[in-house]
């Protein structure tokens, strides 16, 4: 189960809220201070992409952000509900693993070219920032999964 889960309506003004929450939870989880800027930027990019996809596809469902504290890492999943949203763009960005989930047909991966370009810019920033990133495309939507190592909190005696 996610440590903190966030759902927000696909409006640009809420992306900042997602960044703030993600950075706060990441700090608590033990992500290095020096890396928090990267977490903030990467989650912002992923949410911006999801908001754009929802809006351009007329989807009223919220964007999902799951923040999970694991034993030695902290992971963030940003999910959209646009079928086939991840594959096309992700495949062309070096450093991003692209996985096609069950039921994602190639015909569904078409988006208009302008939105596509901004998509790739966001993904390019994410892949430049985050070592561990995966874009999953499924029939019910896409997910960008990112993770960062954590350092355990010092034990106070």
């Amino acid at each position: 189960m996610a440590t903190v889960e966030l759902r927000f309506s696909a409006q640009p003004e809420h992306v900042r809220t997602a960044r703030l929450v993600a950075a706060a939870v990441a700090r608590r989880a033990g992500v290095d201070e020096a890396v928090l800027d990267e977490v903030r930027l990467a989650v912002g990019e992923a949410c911006t992409r999801a908001v754009g996809l929802h809006r351009s596809n007329g989807i009223s469902a919220p964007v999902r952000v799951a923040l999970t504290e694991e034993e030695k890492s902290f992971s963030i999943e940003v999910g959209d509900e646009v079928p086939g949203s991840g594959g096309g763009a992700a495949g062309s960005v070096p450093g991003v693993r692209s996985t096609t989930g069950p039921g994602a047909g190639p015909a569904e991966a078409e988006t208009d070219t302008e939105a596509d370009g901004e998509d790739e810019m966001g993904l390019a920033v994410i892949s430049g920032l985050v070592d561990d990133v995966e874009v999953v495309t499924g029939a019910s939507g896409g997910t960008i999964r990112m993770s960062w190592p954590t350092t355990p909190a010092p034990v106070s005696s």
Partner: peptide
């Protein structure tokens, strides 16, 4: 304080 790909665009 903060710049993302939208700003770069």
């Amino acid at each position: 304080d903060f710049l993302d790909s939208t700003g770069l665009g």
